[in-house]
Amino acid sequence: MLLDGGGTRRSVSPLAPPGVYAPQEDTELLAGALYDEPVPPGADVLDVGTGSGALAVGAARRGCRVTAVDVSRRAVCAARLNALRAGVPVRVRRGDLFAPVRGEAFDLILANPPYVPAPRGGSPAPRGAARAWDAGDDGRLVLDRICGEAPELLRPGGVLLLVQSALSDPGLTVGRLRAAGTKAAVIRRRRIAFGPVVRGRERWLRERGLLSGTEDMEELVVIRAELPV
């Protein structure tokens, strides 16, 4: 569920070729937070880890100047294609997290990073499609980088909207964003059935204590962090 140019909700189906993260419940939850955020036309928006570009297109439909970044070549191509299909301008860059936009400043940053805890956290960084969800043995491989780096790219009064799983400690994210000088809080929650990734490592998650013996659903949250004026 994304946005049209007038800010109303509309259903779209972005293309997500193999190896590119397709919009799912976390994308929809973050899109809802974007819909509620009072972003004026012409605002500079960064969608980091854009995947198919669904959120970037949603922001561009509101008249924002949008930059989308992803480390995956396939995702970069998909985001460009989906922006073209939607008829909206989106500047798409390939690179590691904030590296392609270092030195720039934004009014709004959107982030749907990998956040699922993964076994073998000491192994080399995830490759291929797994880069979209595997995030080390505590799920914070990318989250901690965002907490440390995103506030530096926000203008005064700028906002970061970030979605993650309760499996990767939203309280720690809020605390680290506050320590970085922002006013941060969880603003949305949604419980969903386990997806294939969580189901595939459910036993390991329970052994780690990240899932209790009775939990049969995953909670997603959106965190909003605002840099004071």
Rank of each mutant, 00 (worst) to 15 (best):
Y115I: 10
V92F: 11
G136K: 05
I146F: 01
V88Y: 10
R127M: 06
R145M: 04
R85D: 03
A78L: 09
A79M: 14
T173W: 00
R74S: 11
V69F: 07
G175I: 04
V92G: 13
V174E: 03
L141C: 05
L110W: 07
R80Q: 15
A86V: 11
A135H: 11
V159Q: 00
G157K: 04
A179S: 15
L108E: 02
L97E: 12
D137N: 09
L153W: 08
D137G: 08
A150I: 03
R61G: 03
L110I: 15
P119K: 15
P89Q: 10
A180T: 06
V69S: 11
E104V: 09
L167T: 00
D96L: 10
A60H: 06
D137S: 15
L167M: 07
L172I: 02
T173S: 12
L153R: 06
S168G: 12
I109L: 11
P119H: 03
P124H: 07
V142T: 03
P114T: 03
A180W: 01
Y115A: 05
R65I: 07
R155G: 08
P117C: 04
V66F: 07
C77L: 12
A83H: 01
R120P: 01
V76H: 02
P113W: 00
P124D: 09
D144R: 06
G103P: 14
A132E: 02
V90Q: 14
G121H: 12
L162N: 05
G171W: 01
A180N: 06
D107K: 07
S123C: 15
A105C: 14
L177D: 13
W133M: 00
P124R: 04
R80L: 12
A56H: 15
P151M: 04
P89E: 13
V142Q: 01
G63Y: 08
L172A: 14
L81C: 10
L81M: 09
D70Q: 10
T182W: 08
D134W: 00
A78G: 07
R140Q: 02
R155L: 15
L84F: 11
Q164G: 01
G181N: 12
G53D: 09
R62T: 08
A75F: 12
R140L: 02
S52H: 10
G122D: 15
A78F: 02
L81W: 11
P100E: 12
V76Q: 05
F106A: 08
A54Y: 05
A118K: 03
A83M: 12
D138S: 09
T182N: 09
P113Y: 08
D70N: 08
P119A: 14
R85I: 15
G49H: 01
A179K: 11
P124G: 11
A132H: 00
G157D: 03
R131Q: 13
